[in-house]
Design a protein around this nucleic acid. Structure first.
Lengths: 114, 114
DNA sequence: CCGACGCATCGACAATACTCAATACATGGA
DNA sequence: TCCATGTATTGAGTATTGTCGATGCGTCGG
């Protein structure tokens, strides 16, 4: 099982070629982009993301302590990030391991004029 | 008057050298970053930003129609973007003109691994 | 088979955000 | 000076979000 919100690299929606600095964004492009930014708009999720990015793979159980949040809260945040396509998780035994999806961050970077 | 939330290029706070993909973000770095992402996490504001970016300078009065929002709502969104340091406005006569602050978007891009 | 463990989901609550009508403020023209 | 115009602010209603305790589900060890 891959705990990704949607298929492939794309989380909530494809970001390709939608750029804030180019022609005015369409309604739907803005919606898709806003969803990814919303996932990044929480300090706990940003720290979670940086923890995942720092270790190639990390277990949910190793996130509660550094984030100082309860297990349900951590689970909520991983879900949000996964649905945005920013991280991917898969279960192995009793544990869920998360890794970053670097391509997604690149898409975001491109969308703001990368 | 420059309708920027804070001094200089920085809006809510300096983003320099805080990167999601490098070492774990500190609490305060995450807070500052999250504030900027929160400003980008609304589709109306993203379209507003793209309208501003497309024209070197644009009047508030020319935003209501394309955004299909009331004047107070547009004013609210411009304020949020300005406080995040993403746009800058100054009054000229009766009108307020907004322009993009490209450096701020660059900072955000760098923070996600640019 | 049973209990412990890791994780996801549910329900609830407080805090925040988006929106608009009403109002206040400031500027320029007559 | 007075009024019209563009913008900002206030107040209120609704929706969304972050958080946690309680609970459910799947997996491993004994």
């Amino acid at each position: 099982m891959t705990t990704t919100g949607a298929a492939g690299v794309e989380g909530t929606g494809d970001l390709c070629c939608a750029s804030v600095v180019d022609a005015p964004l369409s309604q739907s492009e803005a919606d898709r982009l806003a969803r990814v930014f919303a996932a990044l708009a929480d300090p706990v999720r940003l720290r979670l993301l940086s923890l995942v990015a720092a270790q190639a793979e990390i277990c949910s159980c190793d996130l509660e302590a550094p984030l100082a949040r309860s297990q349900p809260t951590v689970s909520h945040h991983t879900k949000v990030l996964a649905e945005a396509g920013l991280i991917v998780g898969h279960k192995r035994g009793r544990w869920t391991w998360w890794r970053i999806e670097p391509g997604r961050l690149s898409e975001v970077r491109a969308a703001i004029g990368g």
